[in-house]
Simulated assay, not measured.
Amino acid sequence: MTDQLDLFGTPPTPTGRPAPGRQCPPVRQRGQRSTAGNPAVTVDVLAEVHEGRYGLLDDTDRVVVFEDSDRVRMALDEDAVHQLLAQGYAQRRPLYDTVSCYHGVVRRPVLGLRLTKRGRSLLARWSALRPLD
């Protein structure tokens, strides 16, 4: 049996969910700027939010990336995540999903993020697009 291609010529993923184009979300380094205006970054951020890689640090609303199950770092794509939250494509998880993680050497509460229905449909549409050659 041959692999079936969808309308846009891309093979379906085994899980049926779009995957991000990068291995790990980038963490913020000193002097680095966000690339929130780049559509490719937005697709990756949507996929990474869907996988549960981003969270909000305690009451400061700083966006962090989960490195391990108990360690977080500041995210480079903080602006893109805040835009997705403001436009209704992502939302905070319920308060009972708060986890305690190390941010540096201090343990702090982190509330994970998830996509809304609009965010999942946007991710599905944008993941199916391919660049022109």
Results as ranks from 00 to 15, higher is better:
P109T: 08
R28G: 00
T98Y: 04
A47C: 00
M1V: 13
T98S: 08
G9M: 03
S127M: 08
A90R: 06
Q83K: 12
D70Y: 08
R73K: 09
R92P: 00
Q91V: 02
C101D: 06
Y54T: 02
H50F: 08
A40Y: 11
G37W: 08
D77N: 07
R33N: 15
Q91K: 10
A36Q: 10
Q83P: 05
Q29A: 15
W126G: 00
L84I: 04
P25S: 10
C24M: 09
E67K: 10
D59P: 08
H82N: 05
D133W: 09
R125C: 05
T10C: 12
Q32I: 12
P14R: 13
M1I: 15
T10S: 11
G52C: 05
T42S: 02
T42V: 10
F8Q: 08
G52P: 02
V106K: 13
R17P: 01
F8V: 04
T2L: 10
T60E: 00
E51N: 02
Q87T: 14
P26W: 07
D61H: 03
E51I: 04
C101M: 15
L84F: 02
L113F: 10
V105R: 15
D133E: 15
L57I: 05
Q87I: 01
Q23V: 12
L84G: 02
E67A: 11
R107F: 12
L122D: 01
T2E: 14
L46Y: 01
R92A: 01
N38E: 07
P18V: 00
V43S: 11
P14I: 13
E48P: 07
V81S: 01
V106T: 11
G88T: 09
A47V: 01
D133M: 08
D68F: 15
V81Q: 00
F66E: 03
L95S: 14
V72H: 07
